[in-house]
Simulated scan of single mutants.
Amino acid sequence: MNISVYIRPLVLEDAQTSYLWRNDPKVWTFTNFKATQRITPRMEAAWLQSNLNRPDQIRFAICLKELDTYVGNIQLLDIQDKRAELHLFIGNKMYWGKGIGYQATMLILKYAFFFKNLDSLYLRVHPANIPALSIYEKAGFDIVGEKDGLVRMSISKKKFMALETSDK
């Protein structure tokens, strides 16, 4: 099955879906996010409202083209000095391992480097999160170190452009 995705800006209505993911500990296995209480749709909407218009963040929904279904989030955080931190998660576990994370990563790289004109992206990933590590390595990220038990990875616009050209 070949699944195609697109990304679109997150909207408040997405809270009606994403609150379910916030309450699923499996989704957050490899992250520092641990809900201390049950997240309601109202709480999720309030959190989204406070984060959607921040100038140092751009948050996207990952959606399936064929079904127009929202399945996860990808975002650029801490945008400053032409750099940003990449965060990605697939909240709908039915779509884990289907190549969606890789496609969304490639879309956000194109957006970051060609539309936002950033020079580099970085991320942190748990070393046991093998699927995420393979997504990022396939997309061209390099391991640059480890900090606080997390693998640090980055990619420059120059490297991404070279990879894009060599793929054609």
Rank of each mutant, 00 (worst) to 15 (best):
R83Q: 14
Q80A: 07
K110T: 14
Y70R: 00
D78K: 11
I74E: 03
G101N: 02
G97N: 08
G91K: 08
Q103I: 07
F115S: 15
I74V: 15
L123H: 07
P55C: 04
A46L: 02
M94D: 11
S50A: 11
L109M: 10
L118R: 07
I74Y: 00
Q49M: 10
D78L: 12
I62Q: 03
I108P: 03
L67S: 15
W47N: 03
S50N: 09
L118F: 09
L121H: 06
L118I: 11
L48D: 02
S120L: 10
K98N: 07
F89G: 03
L121G: 09
A112Q: 09
M43L: 11
E66T: 13
Q103Y: 01
F115P: 12
R124D: 14
E44H: 08
L107K: 09
A61S: 08
Q80Y: 07
F114R: 12
Y111I: 10
L107A: 11
S50D: 08
G72C: 05
G101V: 01
Q49P: 09
Q57P: 06
A61D: 01
E44Y: 06
Y95H: 07
Y111S: 05
N73E: 15
Y70Q: 02
L121W: 04
Q103H: 00
A112N: 10
T69M: 10
K65E: 14
F114S: 14
K98A: 09
R59V: 11
K65D: 13
A45N: 00
A104P: 04
A84D: 03
A84P: 01
L64I: 15
K116M: 13
L118Y: 07
F113M: 08
I58M: 04
